[in-house]
Design a protein around this nucleic acid. Structure first.
Length: 118
DNA sequence: CGATTGACGTACG
DNA sequence: TCGTACGCCAATC
């Protein structure tokens, strides 16, 4: 905690907040969240924030967050290798070959959905 | 305290 | 089109 200032630590909370705002049947990418928070180049921090997504309450639907290719890169972090796919499928998101089907169609961009401009 | 890693993404050849 | 390099910042070794 000494290396992490409370103010900067809020970045993680923002990530969790945005992820929780993801509608059912939709997915987004780490970079999209990072860009929305103004940390476009810090996409890794989003992924690192998700690392604690299981530890926060209410739990964060991290399964709705995939990489830019729509690939379920973090599925291994859910425990069972098919847990993430199962959660997405339950949300109505089809997953095939560890990848989101119609990714562009189910893609939920916080920059647009949350209306950055008027 | 320095080096390495990591659920990413972009740039370059 | 594909592979490699680098940046980003925090946590871990």
């Amino acid at each position: 905690m000494s290396t992490t200032n409370p103010k900067l630590f809020n970045f993680f909370e923002d990530v969790y907040a945005v992820v929780r705002l993801i509608p059912k049947g939709r997915v987004t990418s780490y970079g999209a969240i990072a860009a929305y928070l103004g940390a476009k180049g810090s996409s890794r921090m989003v992924g690192w924030a998700m690392n604690g997504a299981h530890n926060v309450k209410p739990k964060v639907p991290a399964q709705r967050v995939v990489n830019r290719n729509g690939l379920l890169t973090g599925k291994h972090h859910f425990g069972p290798s098919d847990e993430m796919e199962k959660l997405l499928l339950k949300d109505g998101v089809k997953v095939e070959n560890d990848k989101v089907v119609n990714f562009a169609k189910v893609f939920w961009d916080p920059m647009v959905e949350l209306s950055i401009e008027d």
